[in-house]
Simulated assay, not measured.
Amino acid sequence: MVSVGYTLMTEQSGPRELVRHAVAAEDAGFDFAVSSDHYFPWLDEMGHSPNAWVTLGAVARATGRIGLMTYVTAPTYRYHPAVVAQQAATLQILSDNRFTLGLGSGEALNEHVVGTGWPSADLRQERLVEAATIIARLFDGGYLTYQGRHFRIDSAKLWDLPERRVPVGIAVSGRQSCELFAPLAEVMVGIDPNPELASWWDSARAGSEAGAGSGPSRKVGQLPISWGADRAAAVSRAHELFRWSLGGWKVNAELPGTAAFADAAATVRESDVADQIPCGDDLGAVVAAATAFVRAGYTDLALVQIGDERQAEFFEASGDIIRAIRGIAGSAGG
Rank of each mutant, 00 (worst) to 15 (best):
I170F: 07
D275S: 15
E179A: 14
R295M: 01
T267N: 08
I225V: 15
R231F: 05
F181A: 07
P167L: 04
I191N: 00
K219P: 01
C178M: 07
D192Q: 12
A210N: 11
G248K: 07
W159F: 14
S217E: 02
A290Q: 04
S199W: 04
A253Y: 05
A266Y: 06
L283E: 05
G228P: 06
E179V: 13
E163P: 03
T291N: 13
R164G: 06
A232N: 10
D160K: 14
P162T: 02
A296K: 07
A262I: 05
G248E: 06
P278A: 10
A266W: 08
G207K: 09
L246Q: 03
L301A: 09
G190H: 04
P256I: 06
W227I: 00
A292R: 15
A290S: 15
F261H: 15
A296S: 14
A204P: 06
C178T: 02
D160N: 14
A206E: 13
I170D: 04
E163R: 14
H239T: 14
A296F: 09
L246S: 06
L184E: 05
A238L: 03
A264L: 07
W227P: 06
L223Q: 11
I170V: 14
F261N: 12
G257D: 15
T267C: 00
T291I: 08
W227E: 07
G248T: 01
V189R: 00
W159H: 15
V251A: 12
S214N: 12
E186N: 10
G284M: 04
G247S: 09
P162H: 10
W200M: 07
V294I: 13
E163V: 11
D160V: 09
A212W: 12
G174A: 11
W227H: 13
R165W: 03
F293P: 03
A232Q: 12
L301Y: 03
T258A: 14
R243V: 06
V286F: 10
A274V: 06
L246A: 05
G213C: 10
D282T: 00
T291S: 15
